[in-house]
Amino acid sequence: MSWLEQLGMAAFRQMDAEAAHGLALKALNSGLTRLPGQISSPRLRTTLAGFSLPNPVGLAAGMDKNAVALHALSRSGFGFLEVGATTPRPQPGNPKPRLFRLREDRAAINRFGFNNEGMEAMATRLSTRPADAVIGLNLGANKDSVDRSADFATVLGSCGPMLDFATVNVSSPNTENLRDLQGKAALEALLCGVLDVRGGLERRIPIFLKIAPDLDEGEVADIAAVAAKVQIDGIIATNTTLDRVGLRSANAREAGGLSGAPLFEKSTAVLARLARETGGAIPLVGVGGVASGEQAYAKIRAGASAVQIYTALVYGGISLVETIVRDLDRLLERDGFGSVKDAVGADL
Rank of each mutant, 00 (worst) to 15 (best):
G79L: 11
F80L: 06
F80W: 11
L81N: 04
L81M: 06
E82V: 06
E82A: 09
E82Y: 13
E82G: 03
E82L: 06
V83C: 09
V83P: 01
A85D: 03
T86E: 11
T86M: 02
T87I: 07
T87G: 04
T87R: 03
P88V: 01
R89Y: 14
P90T: 10
Q91W: 01
Q91E: 03
Q91D: 09
P92G: 13
N94A: 05
P95E: 10
P95G: 05
P95C: 10
P95N: 07
P95T: 12
K96H: 12
K96D: 08
K96W: 00
P97F: 06
R98P: 02
R98G: 03
L99W: 10
L99G: 07
F100Q: 12
F100C: 08
R101H: 11
R101V: 13
R101T: 13
L102K: 04
R103H: 12
R103D: 15
E104S: 08
D105Y: 03
R106L: 10
A107M: 11
A107L: 02
A108N: 10
I109V: 14
I109E: 08
N110H: 06
F112C: 03
F112G: 05
F112V: 10
F112E: 00
F112M: 15
G113S: 08
G113W: 06
F114E: 06
N115R: 13
N115K: 10
N116F: 00
E117H: 05
E117R: 10
M119P: 01
M119L: 12
E120D: 15
E120V: 13
E120W: 08
E120S: 15
E120I: 12
E120R: 15
A121N: 13
